[in-house]
Computed example of a mutant assay.
Amino acid sequence: MRSSQSILQLMIIVFSILNTSLHAIASDPPLTLDYYASTCPTLFEIIKKEMKCSVLADPRNAALILRLHFHDCFVQGCDGSVLLEDTINLQGEKKASTNINSLNGFRIVDRIKNKLESECPGIVSCADILTIAARDAVILVGGPYWDVPLGRKDSVTASLPLAESNLPTQNEGLVTIISKFLYQGLSVTDMVALSGAHTIGMARCESFRERIYGDFGATSGKNLLSETYLNSLKSICPPTPVGEGKNNITAMDYVTPNLFDNSFYHLLVKGEGLLNSDQEMYSGVIGFQTHELVKKYAADPLAFFQQFSDSMVKMGNITNSESFVNGEVRKNCRFVNT
């Protein structure tokens, strides 16, 4: 146990040192809070209105936009590359195994972009739209507010290989997931706090089958409520794909699925996390630091909200230096300008 902890501590130190050089640009991005103050003063009002309509129509839309932002920032930085469609000259990221069945919400971004193009043509980047929309999505389902630094450019490239390699997946071990966050310049604390976004949103059967037919019973204990919950999950997700079973979905936080709160951490403490990657933060044998953070956020919702806000700003500041030089403000978020 101690040797495993020492190895993980050493990894964190090494990756932290590497990140100083790998993400020097991301640590001090050329972003400002008033970037659109004179060029598009109605920006925030327009995005807030469109997001409010979308979330009122379906609370799940909040999670969809938040996930889009996360998947964007982990590939080439927060540059709107996740929004690009495949063309003859460009291979997008939407068909990556980490994205193809987990991303949606593109039409919401389209609607916001169309409104802004009518009001402030050629001014607001899709990358900035997605960053603000993610913040507003969280607020609309009860989460915290944070100021969003702006001034990103949209990339003219995308990277399917980086989408395959950079994004954490539900059945990866804790060490691998921590390393992926550290590579982006995000700490273990950032990882645990940002994982709290799973307090909203849904997961497909394929994402949690291994968990419910694996160690779910061992982590949750032999109590009636947990066994009832596990049986309900098994009724949703058969042990092997049957018909459309692999596409069946359930809430990642079954207690308050449409409310952004700290209920997600309560579930981890009870051993009822839906995804392997989430439960490992509390139950994993090497998760000494993550275990304590999960307990902290379960006990103190204000501490979770504050850290989540700070970590979202930090993630949003992962920049694509190439986009600042050769990027653009797309007229259509799905395609580079011609």
Score class of each variant (00 low, 15 high):
314 K>S: 11
34 D>M: 00
18 L>S: 06
91 Q>P: 00
86 D>K: 04
140 L>T: 07
226 S>M: 01
158 A>L: 02
97 S>L: 13
54 S>I: 02
151 G>K: 09
172 E>L: 15
305 F>T: 02
277 S>I: 15
243 G>E: 11
326 N>M: 11
40 C>D: 12
18 L>W: 07
26 A>D: 15
174 L>D: 02
102 S>Y: 14
166 N>R: 11
40 C>M: 09
134 A>E: 06
84 L>F: 12
42 T>V: 14
97 S>Q: 10
154 D>P: 10
188 V>E: 09
265 Y>P: 05
80 G>E: 05
315 M>T: 03
300 D>C: 09
142 G>R: 04
158 A>W: 03
157 T>N: 09
101 N>Q: 14
173 G>Q: 11
303 A>H: 10
275 L>P: 00
100 I>Y: 07
270 K>F: 05
289 Q>A: 12
291 H>D: 13
70 F>N: 05
273 G>D: 12
85 E>I: 02
28 D>E: 09
70 F>Y: 13
147 D>T: 05
169 T>Q: 15
316 G>V: 06
141 V>H: 01
125 S>D: 04
278 D>Y: 00
176 T>Y: 05
290 T>W: 04
16 S>C: 04
210 E>W: 02
47 I>F: 05
245 G>C: 08
282 Y>C: 09
126 C>N: 13
100 I>S: 15
305 F>R: 14
299 A>Y: 00
105 G>R: 01
244 E>H: 08
47 I>L: 03
5 Q>R: 07
